[in-house]
Design a protein around this nucleic acid. Structure first.
Length: 301
DNA sequence: AAAGGCACCAACCGCACGTGC
DNA sequence: TGCACGTGCGGTTGGTGCCTT
């Protein structure tokens, strides 16, 4: 038995909100507060579904929203948080006052991804782009990796945010640390051994903090329930640093390179610093070509 | 000036989770 | 225990304005 729809779609407006609708929503929430989104439209006299009202309020009408361009500091913070949390936009947004998950997600997809690609970094894994090139093939390859969210059905194996690693394998052919690491990672990951064992000397001093149930607390400033990991053997699709953090390093009390100025104490060997600005040729055979093109297009090269 | 391409972002959609019954 | 409901999240899409040719 399927779920009932969240609203009667025949009687609801869709598309852009009008000023009048905005005012109705604002006035209603001012009077009654947030919540009960399902019943809100009717009570507020809006021909919208509750989800639409919620989204409009959260992403656009909330008074505490910060509008305007992202600062360089926010950029770096987003990158850092993404390296830890993956596409957990709501968690990332929680660390950026005045920014919404949707806003950050859009910004990530339109700006930061390109920025990282221009640095030679895979924005999904936060590793050098050739980290995907486990095979010795020299032709351009496209690798679709299953979703990071094991609870979600795989709707589209070619989902562009699920760890696509589309690289020209020759791009980093002369970057030894990169290729060696990939080889190590790939051989290790399949056997359940983390990369940390290949690079055991990195101590982590995160300003960010993650708490784990029944584990030594790194810190408590992030909601441990929200961050609760699912460190399963097959959960290899989480951003690798996060996976390592959960799967090994906290429990094992060892550090891991998280890159991007996250307070690394012994990060001289951080491979991120070795990356150049190599250009990377990318092709894709996936759906949503338009978006993929956006993501993989080299920026100002 | 016109047309096409591109970038950006608001909004939608489907799914999962938490909770109450 | 299982179902229904309310809500939140992440991925995707459509519309619009700007830029380039």
């Amino acid at each position: 038995m399927g779920r009932s729809p969240c609203c009667e779609k025949e009687h609801t407006n869709k598309g852009a909100w009008t000023k009048e609708e905005d005012e109705r929503l604002i006035n209603y929430i001012k009077l009654h507060g947030e919540g009960c989104w399902r019943s809100l439209p009717k009570a507020a006299g809006l021909l919208r579904c509750g989800k639409s009202c919620r989204l409009r309020w959260i992403n656009y009408l909330r008074p505490d929203l910060k509008r305007g361009n992202f600062t360089e500091e926010e950029d770096e913070l987003i990158i850092n948080l993404h390296s830890l949390l993956g596409n957990k936009w709501s968690l990332i947004a929680a660390r950026l006052p005045g920014r919404t998950d949707n806003e950050i997600k859009n910004y990530w997809n339109t700006h930061i991804k390109r920025k990282l690609y221009s640095r030679g970094i895979d924005p999904q894994t936060h590793r050098p782009l050739n980290a995907a090139s486990a095979t010795p093939a020299t032709t351009v390859t496209a690798t679709a990796v299953p979703s990071s969210n094991s609870k979600k059905k795989i709707k589209n194996n070619n989902n562009n945010n699920n760890g696509f690693q589309l690289v020209n394998n020759s791009a980093y052919a002369n970057t030894k640390i990169g290729t060696d690491m990939i080889a190590a990672e790939d051989s290790n990951s399949s056997s359940g051994v983390t990369t940390e064992e290949s690079f055991p000397h990195h101590q982590l001093n995160l300003d960010l903090s993650i708490g784990l149930p029944s584990q030594p607390q790194v810190s408590s400033s992030l909601n441990p329930e929200k961050l609760k990991p699912e460190p399963q053997e097959h959960d290899d699709q989480k951003p690798q640093v996060l996976y390592q953090l959960y799967g090994k390093n906290i429990t094992g009390q060892q550090g891991v390179c998280l890159c991007y100025n996250l307070g690394l104490q012994s990060n001289q060997a951080c491979y991120c610093k070795t990356m150049g600005t190599s250009t990377t040729t990318v092709t894709t055979t996936t759906a949503t070509d338009r978006n993929l093109y956006r993501f993989y297009r080299p920026m100002n090269i």
